[in-house]
Amino acid sequence: MKLKKPDEPEANVDMTPMIDCVFQLLIFFMVCATMSKVDLTPEVTLPIAPRAAIPENPSGRGVINIVPLGTPAAGGATSEDQPFLVYGQLTDEPGLVKVISERLKTEPNLRIYMRVDHNAEFKVVKRAIRACANAGVFDIIFGAFQSESAGGGT
């Protein structure tokens, strides 16, 4: 007599949870990548201010980076003549006034966010503040870290 073999059960792995996780991760990293489009020059080490506040809405800001003199940038290095970095471009005081004035036309409530290196001297910062005043922006923010080892965020 010929015996009929019972059908072997298929060993299927359910891929759905894994695909869900992968999609979640993908969306997370895509959002992170979009958020870090702000002009954050990595050469700047911000000073520490424990009382500084994390902004709830960081939009509507123009960023000026003030790095230590001699830092390489597009078209040379920062110097006494051109100490400011705006979107990677070196600029001087009149250039800064021009950039801020043009931005002010499209954003009347513009605030200036100054990312100043902790070792930068005040004479350079003073020139940037003066340029803001000449361009008509009176609301200025200094960037700072809340602690030495603050991590996280994007």
Partner: peptide
């Protein structure tokens, strides 16, 4: 999807959270 995931994982750099300390010019 895996390729995209790896791309974004590699290209994402985590920056330290920056905070504000503000003042106003007269």
């Amino acid at each position: 999807v895996f390729l995209l995931l790896v791309f974004f994982m590699v290209s994402t750099t985590f920056n330290r959270q920056e905070a504000d300390i503000s003042f106003a010019l007269p």
